[in-house]
């Protein structure tokens, strides 16, 4: 009886952990199962490189280059903002701030991470966008620039907290040795501490990239929604997640358009999966 309890308890933990694998396979299978059929209507090459996205026209076009470039532009913009701010905050918290300042700053960064994305979207749509129209005298405030700002703020805590972890694992005697050799605080940070933590910092940037590419609500609400290849930062775009979210509700289940949206999800999944693998690889190597 005792043995039976032991074994059944153990089995429950094994079965539970198998669920994580089931769910991952469920996700992969469901997007591939529904996404692959689109390639009966359009070749893989034309799907990826076609610049016209007109899924509802009488002669529909299923080229997602404009959507990919939209995602790429807002993600790049978000990283340009989030890397200096996130890394700067991490370095400040880990190397310069005293204990009390640290206790205040860390919750601020955590708070940024806990704000629901739809509220970021609201802020971008109803506050930031009208403000940008006034400042820059542009026709629309919903564009690459505004989406990048909001996405960038969302990525700051990711880069900041992971970089800070990496910085805090740098052994103390490295810093002390540098200071003892006559280097000042700044030189120690730039030439000793940051290089020693570089793999963790790289990992945080790639993780931030993955988050920014996949973030849906902000780009849905703030990026403007025009499926075009942007020619400037004040152009509206329609990144991949926004396309799926905006169009899935209006499409007929089982139609080519429906499959095309799952096709976009495949591309999105592959991009984020590769970025996860790269992060794993970099961080694991550091630990060994």
């Amino acid at each position: 009886m005792k043995k039976f309890k032991e074994i059944s308890f153990k089995s429950i933990t094994y079965i539970s952990s198998l669920f994580t694998i089931f769910f991952l396979f469920g996700i992969i299978l469901s997007i591939f199962y529904e996404g692959i059929p689109i390639f009966q209507y359009v070749s893989v090459k034309n799907f990826l490189t076609g610049s016209a996205w007109h899924p509802t026209h009488s002669t529909p076009d299923y080229g997602i280059l404009a959507l990919i470039s939209g995602s790429f532009m807002v993600t790049l913009g978000a990283l340009i903002i989030a890397i200096p701010f996130g890394l700067g905050s991490a370095i400040y918290i880990s190397e310069i701030a005293g204990f009390r300042t640290k206790e205040i700053l860390k919750p601020i960064i955590e708070l940024l991470a806990s704000i629901p994305s739809v509220i970021y979207g609201l802020f971008g749509l109803a506050f930031l966008s009208p403000m940008l129209i006034k400042i820059f005298k542009i026709p629309t405030g919903l564009n690459v620039f505004s989406a990048s700002i909001i996405l960038g703020v969302m990525v700051i805590p990711i880069i900041s907290s992971m970089s800070e972890d990496a910085l805090s694992t740098v052994p103390k005697n490295l810093r002390e040795a540098s200071l003892a050799l006559g280097a000042n605080k700044w030189e120690t940070i730039v030439r000793v501490v940051v290089p020693a933590a570089r793999s963790g910092i790289m990992g945080s940037v790639i993780l931030g990239f993955g988050r920014a590419v996949g973030e849906t609500m902000v780009v849905l609400m703030v990026a403007g929604g025009a499926a075009q290849i942007p020619s400037g930062i004040f152009q509206p775009v329609r990144p991949m997640p926004a396309t799926i979210a905006a169009e899935m509700g209006e499409t007929v289940i089982g139609s080519p358009h429906f499959h095309a949206l799952y096709g976009i999800a495949i591309i999105l999944f592959v991009i984020t999966f590769v970025s996860i693998l790269i992060t794993e690889f970099i961080v694991r190597r550091r630990k060994m």
Binding site: I27, S30, I31, E34, L207, G210, R211, V213, G214, E215, T216, P241, I244, A245, M248, L261, Y262, A265, L268, F269, T272, F273, S275, I276
Partner: peptide, 9 residues
């Protein structure tokens, strides 16, 4: 790391 919209799908 899977984007939330893919969870939706």
């Amino acid at each position: 790391g899977v984007p939330s919209i893919i969870y939706g799908l």
